Computed example of a mutant assay.
Amino acid sequence: MIDELSRRQLRIIGEITDVAAANGVDVWLRGGWAMDFFLGELTRPHVDVDWFCWAADADRLASALHDRGFVDDPRVPPELQRDLVKDGVEVSFALLARDARDRVVVGAAGRWAGSPYPEGMLDGPVGRLGDVSCRTICPRSQIELKEMYPVWMPERPRRAKDRDDITRLKAALVTAPGPAG
């Protein structure tokens, strides 16, 4: 049975996907929801909904979402990440850019600015949960990111949910037909 917060988050995912498409903005679901969309099932409750978008599109996307009732979350400076809230659902957009070698890199200010993301990260599948579908980052990149968080941020040890997510994704990739990104 899906809880009320998950139901609202799923509705918000659909809304963001529609708003982004209507405004010509590319977005990719990341984190726990990306895993669920790849697997095609809700595996656990989620605190928030994580996305990637191009830094150059972030203001335009935020403006379009403001028009739909989203408000800025003031806890994170917008030059680091675009965080918004609607109906008690927190969404965050990590910012992307391309470097001189055309690699996808961290497009936000801060100590990681310009750091490359895993190659092929944006080549993930369109995932589906119920009647909502959206682009996700590739599962192999999702695994790499979850494995690297404690290395990049030693103050944040690996969480049990991340270990479980990594295990689920690796198992799904072993049984998936053909390349799964």
Rank of each mutant, 00 (worst) to 15 (best):
S115H: 08
L96N: 04
A64C: 11
R135K: 15
R156T: 10
P125L: 13
P116F: 00
R11A: 14
L96P: 03
V89I: 05
A172I: 06
A160D: 14
W152K: 06
T17H: 05
A108T: 07
Q9L: 02
C138D: 11
I13L: 04
L169S: 09
K170L: 15
A94N: 13
A171M: 07
G110R: 07
R44V: 13
H66R: 12
I137E: 03
G107D: 15
D164T: 11
R103A: 03
P150M: 01
V76K: 15
L145Y: 09
P116W: 00
G107P: 10
R135I: 05
W152P: 01
V104P: 04
W33I: 09
I16R: 03
L65K: 09
T175W: 03
M121E: 04
R135M: 11
A109H: 09
V49R: 01
K86E: 13
W33Y: 05
A176T: 12
G24R: 06
F70K: 06
E147N: 11
A109S: 15
M121S: 08
P78K: 14
D131I: 13
V49L: 01
H46K: 03
M1W: 06
W51D: 09
G114F: 01
S6G: 08
R30M: 03
P78L: 04
L173R: 11
L84A: 13
A64I: 15
R128N: 11
D59L: 14
M121L: 08
L84Q: 07
E147P: 06
T136D: 05
S141D: 10
L145H: 10
V151G: 08
M35F: 05
H66D: 15
Q142E: 10
V47N: 06
V89R: 02
V89C: 10
P177A: 09
R103K: 05
D165Y: 00
Q142P: 03
Q81W: 00
R163L: 12
R60N: 12
R101N: 14
A64P: 15
E119A: 06
E41H: 10
R30Q: 07
S92A: 08
G120I: 03
G114N: 13
A108Q: 04
E119T: 14
T175S: 14
W33S: 07
A97F: 03
V105T: 05
A97D: 13
L10Q: 02
D162L: 07
Q9C: 06
I143N: 02
V89Q: 12
P125H: 02
D3F: 02
Q81D: 10
K86P: 03
M121D: 13
G130C: 11
S133W: 06
S115Y: 07
I12Y: 00
S92R: 06
P116I: 04
D162Q: 12
D164I: 09
D48N: 08
S115K: 14
D102P: 03
P45V: 01
L96D: 02
L84M: 09
R111G: 11
D26W: 00
Q142D: 13
H46Q: 09
G181E: 12
R11L: 09
Y117C: 06
K146D: 07
L42H: 08
G88Y: 04
E144L: 13
H66V: 04
G88W: 09
R128M: 11
R140C: 03
T17A: 08
R75T: 15
V105R: 01
A94D: 12
R8F: 03
I13M: 02
E119P: 05
D73L: 14
E119I: 12
